[in-house]
């Protein structure tokens, strides 16, 4: 056997399994068509959840944003899974450059842990770009190890026709609170899911089914959003953070 063949044979042993490739393809396909398949209700938050979930896994991920430019049918978002900004000062400097507000070092018992720029591109139904914009997203952790995320993005047009879980007014600012339930199912469950669950997903603004997990798993994604000036804030968590804890963060942000 010649040298080239031996080396080829050695490298041939390094490969993804067919299942891994299939899962990778599914994830890419799901990400690229995400908004088209989930128009209406809070599809943006679904995407947001996916990004958050995947950041935990430590990979570069796809996600969403809270608003869509007029005519936008799909939003592609991406960010580095590693922190672009190690300190609140650094991300605040970037926020200033983008015309956004500063990020606190500490808020309601949560300390700044890291932050990223999230790049968004909107597309209309025909695939034409409807604009690009960046948002900033920072993670904060408390002493119990729970995380919350604070995101700032430009306010862009988009319809919000969903029924929110709760709505509170803090110092004249309307804060929309949602608690969404996500049922993650293995990919081979697609097409075999219980009709009752599918019916619930169709009728419940706060229930979503996502395929791709190893085991069936239910998680809750809590978020609160509000607008100050022309900046939209989204504060969210996938940990056991209560509505009160989330609203405390919102209150401090608004009152600062």
């Amino acid at each position: 056997m010649q040298n080239r063949e031996k080396i080829k044979k050695a490298f041939s042993g390094v490969h993804f399994s067919e299942m891994e490739k299939s899962l990778m393809t599914d994830r890419i396909s799901e990400a690229s068509l995400f908004a088209k398949e989930r128009t209406g209700k809070n599809n943006m938050k679904m995407k947001r959840w996916q990004r958050v979930a995947m950041i935990v896994a430590g990979v570069l991920v796809l996600g969403g944003t809270v608003g869509a430019a007029a005519g936008t049918d799909m939003i592609r978002s991406w960010s580095n899974s590693f922190s672009d900004f190690k300190t609140a000062g650094k991300i605040s400097q970037k926020a200033s450059e983008l015309g956004m507000n500063s990020f606190p070092d500490e808020i309601a018992g949560f300390e700044y842990s890291g932050g990223n720029t999230v790049h968004n591109t909107g597309e209309d139904e025909a695939g034409n770009s409807t604009g690009d914009w960046d948002e900033l997203e920072a993670e904060y952790k408390n002493e119990d190890g729970k995380s919350i995320y604070i995101s700032q993005s430009p306010v862009v047009e988009g319809k919000d026709d969903q029924q929110h879980t709760d709505e509170v007014v803090i110092d004249g600012t309307t804060v929309l609170y949602d608690c969404d339930e996500y049922l993650f199912l293995p990919p081979d469950m697609e097409g075999k899911t219980d009709q009752k669950l599918l019916d619930r997903e169709a009728s419940d603004d706060h229930f979503f089914i996502s395929y791709g997990s190893d085991e069936p798993e239910t998680k809750f994604f809590k978020n609160a959003s509000f607008v100050i000036g022309d900046i939209r804030y989204l504060i969210f968590s996938y940990d056991e953070v209560s509505e009160d804890e989330l609203i405390s963060v919102v209150r401090e942000l608004i009152q600062k």
Binding site: K6, K9, A10, S12, G13, V14, H15, F16, S17, E20
Partner: peptide
């Protein structure tokens, strides 16, 4: 799981 070990010499 990422590497098939069917060829010891190759590995």
């Amino acid at each position: 799981e990422l590497v098939s070990g069917d060829d010891f010499t190759g590995n």
